[in-house]
Amino acid sequence: MKPFDYIRADSTTHATRAAGQGANFIAGGTNLLDLMKLEVMAPHKLVDINRLDLHQITEVDGGLRIGALVSNSDLAADMTVRKQYPVLSEALLAGASGQLRNKATTGGNLLQRTRCYYFYDTAMPCNKREPGTGCQAMEGATRLHAILGTSDACIASHPSDMAVAMRLLDAVVEIESAGGAVRSVPLSEFYRLPGQTPHIETVLEPSDLIIAVTLPAPAKGAQTYRKVRDRASYAFAMVSVAARVQMDEGTITDAALAFGGIGSQPWRNPAVEKALIGQKPSPELFAKAADILLADAKPQKDNAFKVPLTRRTLIATLKELCGKDAA
């Protein structure tokens, strides 16, 4: 771990002013500290935001405003979340372990880094860790890697469960910049595709601080989060599906689908949802949805199974949510 300066922020203004190029905010630190020990990340300064007043969950305009420092455990256990946004609670509880969820925060979870083996090993080339050095994962060990939204510079997957559910729920990220201006960015516009700059993962500027995540009023329909993984707990998703489907008299009137474990970011494809809405559920319809989702999939040797796995998991999830009408 490289020596670094440590500043404990007492206000968001203080925090954003203290931050900047080469600095990192630290909240739970569950990912950042590991990365710093390995020197995958080596900030010269840490701005500790844990004392900031960002721990509340409040109901706003029929929706929910979640402070950036609300822990994953608290968010998963919140009664409103459990009742109105059960997919979020399920996703949170599917991630990490109890100890990690106690420390991990809402804002931090959105920013967790990939679990690509090569990103974690500083002896290996990695465009995400050291821009321009190349991607050693390509043609290498790729079980964990993405099949959607990748580029020839990076095939890393986004590891979060929470962010997949947030993506489904049309969450909006509240960001405070240096100087105090606050802007709202929908999660759909928050992450950037890797392209040739996989080291730039979000639209955040160096001093930007996530202060809250807001959820719109709960949409109608049944929700579920299904995570497929190599062991029963404490493993990242091979694929996960966050889904919401509303049925009316045998017809799908609304649908939303987001995916983890397969995308370079929490993945959502509006064309898949559009294909479902207004249709009667059938095996053919579900197969068509899977076809649309996976049309552009670019698997590697080790993760080619994610194509059939995603297809099957999506179809089973849709069957479950559409009920027995699904045939």
Binding site: R115, Y120, D121, A123, L144, R231, S233, Y234
Partner: peptide, 16 residues
């Protein structure tokens, strides 16, 4: 080189 050299990615059984 050993790719999964930690307990996050070398999967020993967990309680579950």
């Amino acid at each position: 080189h050993l790719v999964n050299h930690d307990l996050a990615e070398y999967h020993i059984p967990v309680n579950a």
